[in-house]
Simulated assay, not measured.
Amino acid sequence: MPSSPAIDDYLKTIYHHTEWQNDRITPSQLAAELGLAPSSVTEMVQKLAAQDLVTHRPYGPIALTEPGRLRAAAIIRRHRLIETWLVREFGYAWDEVHDEAEVLEHAISDRLLEGIDERLGRPRFDPHGDAIPDAAGEVERVPFVLLASAPAGHTGRVLRVSDRDPDVLRAVEAAGVEVGADATVTDAATLRIGDVDVALPAAAADAVWLSA
């Protein structure tokens, strides 16, 4: 199917919505995520359904079909490999890579993407902990829990820090929390890492995921 940045952005957003929770995205949520008028989103969703990329009933949630999922996974693979490349090879901070990757994901060739993947050792996760789909569109995930939902005393590995808010990313990094660190929940605003209690900004409760 011909490349279309607009279609890819829709499919990426739908795909990403259910990566870390199970509720399907609604048209109003999709419009809010994309910053578009609901009428524009309704029109595009109808076009995506006609191309067998999504399933949707009026006023109901939207789901990717298998062709839609594979196309979304392909563009997300590009985005997350580029983010990883920028951090590892060019010294970008993890709060700086999203916008660069948004531009580059539509510009690099498949050959260059394969070269990046090989050079990086075929990473399975990006700097924020999001899974990088493989060339077949498959991903590896483990059971997870959002920090806000984790009970006091829960011990797990930091799986992901959302890249939605760069300020939260910077605050989490400044606090010394890294993806992959073992942590015990003291409360929704505090993690014990090693022998240190790490205070987090309030917004981190909805931005940090731990292994379940």
Rank of each mutant, 00 (worst) to 15 (best):
V103L: 13
P127Q: 02
E118L: 15
A93F: 10
R160D: 03
E105I: 09
L64P: 03
F144E: 09
G129Y: 11
G68R: 08
V172M: 05
S109N: 05
G129V: 09
V168E: 00
E66R: 13
I62K: 04
D163A: 11
R119W: 14
F90N: 10
R111H: 14
H79F: 05
R78G: 11
H106Q: 06
V139K: 14
A152H: 05
L113Y: 08
V161I: 09
R164D: 12
R124Q: 13
R170C: 02
A107N: 10
F125D: 11
P58F: 06
I116S: 04
I82T: 00
A136H: 06
S162M: 02
R157K: 15
A150W: 01
T84I: 03
L146V: 01
S149C: 07
A63V: 08
E114Q: 09
R78D: 03
L113V: 05
V87A: 01
D99S: 11
E173W: 09
R157G: 11
D99L: 11
D130W: 10
D126H: 07
E96P: 06
R111C: 13
V158E: 00
R164N: 11
R141L: 11
I76Q: 11
E173Q: 12
T55Y: 13
D134K: 08
R57N: 15
R124V: 13
E96Q: 03
R71H: 06
L70T: 09
L113S: 06
L159V: 01
H154A: 07
R119N: 12
R78I: 13
A74E: 08
R157V: 15
E100R: 15
A73E: 04
E89Q: 15
L81I: 04
A93D: 12
L169I: 05
V158K: 00
A135S: 15
D167H: 13
I76T: 12
V161H: 02
E89H: 11
A136T: 14
V142E: 15
A72M: 03
D110F: 05
L147C: 03
D95N: 15
T55N: 13
S162H: 01
A150E: 00
E89Y: 08
I82E: 01
H79G: 02
I75V: 13
A93S: 15
E140W: 14
H79W: 06
R170P: 10
V161P: 00
S109R: 04
Y59W: 14
G153T: 00
V158N: 00
V142S: 14
L113I: 05
F144V: 12
I82H: 04
A93Y: 10
R80V: 06
P61V: 04
E105A: 07
R124H: 12
L81N: 06
S162R: 06
R88D: 10
Y92E: 02
G137L: 12
A131H: 08
S109L: 10
L64A: 10
D165V: 13
D95C: 12
E138P: 13
V161W: 03
L159W: 01
L113N: 05
A171S: 10
L81K: 04
R160F: 04
L159N: 02
A107H: 10
A135V: 14
D165F: 09
E66L: 12
A135L: 15
D99C: 07
